[in-house]
Amino acid sequence: MPRVCGLEVFRLTLPYGRRTESILVRLTDYGGMTGWGEVVDPDPKAWSILQEQLAPALIGVDWEHPDELGVVPGGPAGDMACWDLWARMRGVPLAHALGGSRTSLMATVRVSGDRNLESLVARVNRHVCAGYAHITMDVHPGWDVEPLRAVRLAYPALGIGLDARGAYTDIDALEALDAYAPSVIERPFAVPGGLTDHADLQERVAAPVLLEVGSAADLQDAVAAGAGRALLMRPAAVGSLREVRRMHDIAAEAGWEIACAGGQGTGLARAATVAAASLPGCTLPCDVAEPPRSAQIVTPPVGATGGVVAVPLTQPGLGHGIDEDRVRRLAKESHRA
Rank of each mutant, 00 (worst) to 15 (best):
M106L: 14
D41T: 10
E243P: 07
V298M: 08
I258H: 00
A206Y: 06
V298E: 01
M89V: 03
R329P: 02
A230P: 02
D200H: 13
E52A: 12
E324L: 14
R126F: 03
I59Q: 09
A199W: 11
G262M: 09
A222Q: 06
L117R: 11
R115V: 06
D172T: 11
I185F: 06
R90C: 09
S112T: 14
D144K: 09
L98C: 02
L330A: 10
G6Y: 07
R152P: 05
D249L: 08
I135C: 11
V274P: 00
V25A: 05
G267H: 09
Q220G: 14
C286R: 00
V109Q: 08
S112K: 13
Q315N: 05
A157M: 13
A173M: 07
D323Q: 12
I322H: 05
V238T: 05
L195A: 03
H140D: 08
E146Q: 15
G303Q: 08
R328C: 11
A224W: 10
D325G: 09
P2M: 12
G226S: 09
A236N: 03
P15G: 08
V39P: 01
V92H: 09
G319D: 04
D144S: 15
P76L: 07
L105I: 11
E52V: 12
A97G: 08
S294G: 06
L241F: 13
L98M: 14
L330K: 11
L284Y: 03
A217G: 08
E186T: 09
V61P: 04
T108E: 05
V121D: 08
A310I: 11
P66M: 01
L69H: 11
A154L: 11
S183N: 04
R126G: 07
D197N: 13
H320W: 12
E64H: 12
C282M: 02
P76S: 14
A154Q: 03
T283L: 06
L158R: 04
D200P: 01
V72K: 02
V25G: 00
S22M: 08
A46Q: 02
A254V: 10
A122R: 14
S240D: 08
Q220V: 07
I258G: 00
L210N: 05
V302F: 08
S119G: 10
P280K: 12
A304L: 06
I135M: 02
L210E: 01
L279C: 09
S101V: 15
A181W: 03
L279V: 09
G166H: 01
L58N: 07
G319W: 01
F10C: 08
R270T: 01
R11M: 07
L174V: 10
A216L: 07
T305H: 12
E38Q: 12
A269V: 03
R102L: 15
L69D: 01
R90W: 10
A87P: 02
L12V: 13
S101P: 03
A130R: 12
P42A: 10
D67H: 11
I171P: 04
D218S: 15
H65Y: 09
Q220R: 15
K332C: 10
R18T: 13
I23D: 04
T108H: 00
A176S: 13
P192H: 11
G161F: 06
V151P: 01
L85I: 11
L232I: 07
D287P: 00
